[in-house]
């Protein structure tokens, strides 16, 4: 089935063998469905929201500028083996890319995605999907949902119309299953415990903007972009021009991160977020308050990547839990 899937002009995206990130696979032997190991260091968002992509080209001949559209591909982008904490990423980011102006670079790829999710039986001290209203057995965000039954066998559940249409040519590879068996498998999954109440965190941030908690975290935060770039839903970007040859250039849309000091620096030298405390506060507030206020979604899926990968072990769930308990104390 994987072979036929690959032939159809589809880009099949799987987690890479080292768990560093996700990659487009070329052969069925590269298929890797990770449902019981730690999530990859970096999420798959780059296949929808590219880490770098041209948004147009210009020919830089004096007197005669021509703007050319950046080309985009077609064919489905199939995320194979998305844990529930990954499966929702595209729909969450879609809010900001469409709330008014529509970003076609995101949308053209987002529309072509097929999310084949998988029920997740991995859980470690950094997982907190249940705290942000996602759970490891949830097909939410998936078009097709796999439930691991044993080493080799998956129950396949068709979740959306898009998923149904996509899978129809491949139905011949599937056999009629027993719904009770997959229900049983789902029932056995142990959910990570709830670490905080997102509504509490959201409310507290709104009222405690100058709290010393942010200073404590900011004092060890290094200001790198690991958290933002590993995150399945962080979506901030930069726009820069670069050359592609002597006479031609292009404008690029590149990942950017609110933790970088330059992110908000005005050319006058003024910087509204001039220290790491404020920048970390922005990260937390954007995830749990601003995005939720504006778009009705928490900008976090509880995957724990930012915490696992943080070079100084800032654990976002721990921070949120601390906020929650501070909020409960007052």
């Amino acid at each position: 089935m994987a072979e036929e899937l690959l032939k159809g002009g589809n880009a099949v995206i799987c987690e890479d063998e080292k768990g560093r990130g996700w990659k487009r696979i070329d052969s069925p032997s590269e298929v890797r469905i990770n449902h019981n190991e730690v999530p990859s260091n970096i999420s798959y968002k780059e296949f929808v929201f590219s880490k770098t992509e041209p948004i147009f080209y210009f020919k830089n001949r004096k007197e005669n500028y021509e703007l050319a559209e950046a080309a985009d591909g077609n064919g489905k982008i199939v995320f194979l083996g998305a844990k529930p904490c990954d499966a929702r990423s595209v729909e969450i980011m879609s809010k900001v890319f469409n709330w008014d102006y529509k970003d076609k670079f995101f949308n053209e790829k987002a529309e072509r995605t097929i999310v084949i999710g998988v029920a997740c039986s991995y859980k470690d001290e950094f997982c907190f999907c249940t705290s942000v209203n996602i759970n490891p057995a949830s097909p939410e965000g998936s078009d097709i949902f796999l439930v691991p039954l044993d080493e080799k066998e998956y129950a396949v559940r068709i979740i959306t119309e898009k998923g149904k249409e996509f899978i129809s040519p491949y139905l011949k590879y599937l056999t009629e299953g027993n719904a009770a068996r997959s229900e049983e498998a789902l029932g056995k999954i142990k959910w990570p415990g709830k670490k905080f109440e997102p509504g509490k965190v959201r409310e507290w941030i709104g009222n405690n903007f100058e709290h010393k908690l942010f200073d404590e975290i900011g004092s060890t935060c290094l200001g790198c972009g690991q958290c933002a770039f590993a995150c399945p839903v962080c979506h901030c970007f930069d726009i820069v021009d670069e050359e592609c040859s002597y006479e031609c250039g292009r404008r690029m849309k590149n990942w950017d991160a609110c933790q970088f000091g330059l992110f908000t620096l005005h050319s006058s030298g003024h910087n509204p977020r001039d220290n790491q405390n404020k920048r970390y506060r922005q990260r937390i507030a954007h995830k749990f308050k601003y995005y939720a206020d504006k778009f009705g979604e928490i900008l976090c899926t509880g995957c724990g990547r930012c915490s696992r990968g943080c070079p100084v072990q800032i654990d976002i769930a721990q921070v949120a839990a601390e906020i929650n308990s501070t909020a409960n104390r007052v």
Binding site: H235, D238, I239, P272, H286, Y290
Partner: peptide
Amino acid sequence: GKCGRCNVGN
């Protein structure tokens, strides 16, 4: 309203 750097609160 996309790139995220000008936001002040929400």
